[in-house]
């Protein structure tokens, strides 16, 4: 971790500046990738045309260009960045409150719950009075919050120790996984295909509505998260030390659990379960800026967005005709990144 200053006398200034550098570099990379994502796609628009279309706005004169750029590609690109950011931030918070580098937003069964919610509407949705495209995200969102609620109840009444949270989470995970399997077993082949496709996690489901909803959720959650940055950093000193600094560690865990549930539900309900981003982004963030959550949380969010947008570009490049669901790409592409981080750590 050579990025952290060792020579500066008061141990602050240079460390602060180099971390800002890491955050800025990640932001530049993200912007570049987002433009690249807008340029790639089945319609094959060159960069100059895309830049022209961006300047013209959604109501530009070239209707074909405006439609492709502003109605098809832009929501997907923005959604990739927002989902990646939400999963990256919740991943780091989850790893911190569970004191476990293996944790991710999905550790406590949240993704299984989302999958169950979505599958139940896909299966029984025809009987519901709402359209499928509204019903599925709402059900996925609600199921995720229900899973979080179960874990929260355990934490509320039996104490929010990391071990207990993980145990309760695993129980919830198995519960919803079984329910989801049951639905898949009951489903007709063509419905089953729809369920499986949802579970892959794909940006094709992104619309301006989903972008707006997730933006609102992020806008609500981020100020609350910002209030906890020092508390989360203090928690890294261990429960005993954090508590002796006057921090109620169990209450902190419960508050953060709610925030993670909200962000994760918002992220997965429109796109399906996109794995790995929430596991890998916190590790990359920590390796670059250490465990000061003032920098770690923003960076985990940006890295999460970078990973997902990069996966989106890759998916479009390797299979221009039929876009490969981004959830599949992130899992495959995430492995080398994780190994890279592990090896990088081994050296320092």
């Amino acid at each position: 971790m050579s990025v952290l200053a060792h020579d500066r006398r008061d141990g602050f200034t240079r460390a602060g500046i180099s971390r800002m550098g890491a955050v800025c570099a990640a932001l530049i990379l993200l912007s570049t990738l987002m433009v690249a994502d807008l340029v790639t796609g089945p319609a094959g628009l060159p960069l100059s045309e895309v830049l022209h279309g961006l300047r013209e706005g959604p109501s530009g004169e070239d209707r074909r260009l405006a439609t492709i750029l502003w109605h098809l590609r832009m929501p997907q690109t923005l959604m990739a960045a927002l989902v990646g950011a939400a999963l990256g931030i919740s991943g780091l918070m989850m790893q911190t409150i569970l004191n476990n580098p293996l944790a991710s937003p999905y550790t406590l069964g949240f993704s299984a719950a989302a999958g169950f919610g979505a599958a139940s509407v896909i299966l029984f949705g025809t009987a519901l009075p709402v359209a499928m495209w509204i019903g599925v995200p709402i059900a996925a969102f609600a199921a995720t919050l229900a899973a979080a609620g179960l874990v929260y109840l355990v934490a509320r009444f039996r104490g929010a120790s990391p071990e207990l949270l993980v145990l309760a989470g695993i129980a919830v995970l198995f519960l919803f996984q079984s329910l989801q399997s049951l639905l898949q077993f009951m489903a007709a082949p063509e419905v089953l295909q729809q369920i499986v496709f949802w579970l892959f996690g794909s940006l094709l489901k992104a619309t301006w509505t989903s972008v707006k909803v997730l933006s609102v959720i992020l806008a609500l959650a981020l100020p609350l998260i910002a209030r906890e940055v020092w508390n989360l950093t203090a928690l890294r000193l261990g429960d005993g030390n954090a508590a002796s600094l006057g921090l109620n560690v169990e209450a902190l865990r419960r508050r953060v659990l709610v925030l993670v549930a909200l962000l994760t539900a918002g992220a997965v309900c429109f796109t399906g379960t996109i794995g790995f981003v929430g596991l890998i982004a916190p590790h990359v963030g920590r390796a670059l800026v250490g465990e000061d959550h003032r920098f770690g949380l923003p960076l985990a969010g940006i890295v999460g967005a970078v990973v997902l947008v990069a996966a989106s570009v890759t998916g479009k490049l390797i299979s221009p005709g039929a876009v490969i669901p981004v959830g599949i790409i992130t899992a495959i592409a995430g492995i080398p990144m994780l190994f890279g981080v592990i090896l990088m750590r081994g050296r320092t």
């Binding site: 952290l4 602050f12 890294r236």
Partner: peptide, 19 residues
């Protein structure tokens, strides 16, 4: 039981006293 395994600098750790 005070052992700290966090990757934060000594100065930052002390700073948390003013949490």
């Amino acid at each position: 039981n005070f052992a700290v395994s966090a990757a934060i600098s000594v100065a930052e750790c002390v700073l948390l006293g003013r949490r």
